[in-house]
Design a protein around this nucleic acid. Structure first.
Length: 413
DNA sequence: TCTGGGGTCCTAGGACCC
DNA sequence: TCTGGGGTCCTAGGACCC
């Protein structure tokens, strides 16, 4: 039996959610009705456009471009800082609303989800009708609009939700693929990025239809697994299921682009310590330990290098994460200026497994106790209530600890 | 003042074992 | 001393997503 799958996508999510919150607090005008963007620190080199209003788009402003460039295109542009805590709350709320229309809901990203509507017609009517009910419920309860794509599988539903925006419902059933999807440029196809687009154009494939009609085996030999996938997607083939069970994270990482390029190992260590604190706190919050640590560096010419280390016993304390990332850093750094640093932890075990680990020594358990106390304090009184002496006044601490710690006040201004 | 931050998955090469 | 092939695991890098 054919399934009915919805893909639900919040229109300019970060901007819409922020706008809805401002309106709730009586702050006008509506950000969606003026040239406005959500973006980081305007005067720092890390400030880029994360989301834009429709009128900002009319000025040629694009997601991902530096804020100063956006401001050049539109001097009156309103810039509002992101509030990731709010976005996570909104994401959860949206899932709650959708779960009333089907128990099979899969979160795909902070602002997108899949919903399996199969057999729900009995309760909520035709797929179009069900989609209208969901769209109206989200609008009423959250004050934002969504696009909903409807089809028989996730890929086609996702492609459909990307058609005309905002506040629209589109279908893309298999008999509509030729007319609605094949004429689109190949770059519009899910999982075709810049590199693959170039390779496809090199062999004369410009539209999704070109790819669909090309020989499957040939494309596979040309692009390997990626070729197989692209051919299947171009033909609307996708057998993946809506996975409504929450899947465990496979990696946890934190990184930072520095205000200035780093040229000494001493300043790199400060950054590593700040990142180790952050990533460690997240790991411990999930009651996990990790056995692989990786450090990646971005040089001033935007090339990234990474090294990883498999550990004999799992770690979770800031002390250990810092210790090993420093070791990895020393091994790999060639003294060229560093633009950004990231620490990533993988290969998790639950911390219960670790507690009975034979190798857990006194230093480790002491470090863990300290970390847990700090984590508790921060959970209660906010991240900045306590800080390592070595990080004070480095202004790196500010950069790292405040990266996502935006207050209500600054968001409403 | 060019280009954030957090993820997943795939590939290719090398080490090591039988 | 020089030779094989298959399998697994690890690592670094790269592609893609939002």
């Amino acid at each position: 039996m054919e399934r009915i799958i919805f893909h639900i996508d919040v229109n300019s999510a970060f901007l819409s959610w922020t706008a809805a919150k401002r309106i709730k607090y009586g702050l006008f005008p509506d950000l969606r009705e003026i040239p406005a963007v959500i973006g980081g620190r305007e005067h720092s080199r890390t400030g880029i456009v994360l989301a834009k209003s429709i009128s900002a788009k009319k000025f040629g402003i694009q997601t991902g471009e530096p804020l100063y460039k956006a401001k050049e295109k539109c001097p009156d542009l309103k810039i509002v800082h992101p509030d990731f805590k709010l976005y996570n709350e909104c994401s959860k709320k949206m899932i709650d609303i959708c779960t009333k229309y089907s128990p099979f809901v899969e979160q795909f990203s902070v602002d997108e989800l899949f919903l399996d509507y199969t057999n729900m017609e009995y309760h909520f009517g035709s797929p179009i009708n069900g989609a209208k009910l969901i769209s109206e419920a989200i609008k009423k309860e959250m004050g934002v609009t969504v696009n909903i794509g409807i089809s028989n599988n996730k890929l086609l539903a996702k492609m459909a939700s990307d058609f005309e925006k905002p506040d629209k419902i589109h279908t893309l059933f298999p008999d509509e693929i030729q007319s609605k999807m094949w004429p689109l440029p190949v770059s519009e196809l899910f999982m075709v990025g810049r590199k693959t687009e170039e390779k496809l154009k090199n062999i004369g494939l410009y539209t999704i239809g070109d790819v669909a009609r090309c020989d499957r085996k040939f494309l596979r030999s040309y692009l390997k697994e990626q070729g197989e996938l692209t051919w299947c997607y171009a033909n609307g083939i996708d057998i993946s299921k809506v996975n409504h069970k929450e899947s465990e994270a496979k990696s946890i990482g934190n990184g930072a682009t520095l205000p200035k390029n780093i040229t000494t190992s001493k300043s790199a260590y400060s950054v590593l310590l700040g990142l180790a604190e952050k990533v460690g706190e997240r790991l411990r919050k999930k009651k996990l330990t990790a056995t692989v640590i990786s450090v990646s560096l971005k040089s001033s010419d935007f090339k990234t290098y990474s090294h990883q280390k498999a550990l004999y016993s799992p770690v979770s304390s800031t002390y250990e994460i810092f210790h090993y990332s420093k070791e990895i850093f020393n091994e790999m750094w060639n003294c060229s200026p560093i633009r950004a640093i990231t620490i990533t932890l993988t290969e998790f075990q639950t911390s219960e497994d670790m507690q009975c680990c034979f190798f857990t020594n006194e230093i480790t358990s002491k470090a863990l106790k300290t970390d847990n106390s700090i984590d508790d304090l921060r959970a209660k009184y906010g991240h900045n209530c306590i800080m390592r002496a070595s990080l004070i006044n480095t202004h790196l601490s500010h950069k790292i600890t405040n990266a996502q710690d935006t207050t209500l006040k600054s968001n409403l201004n």
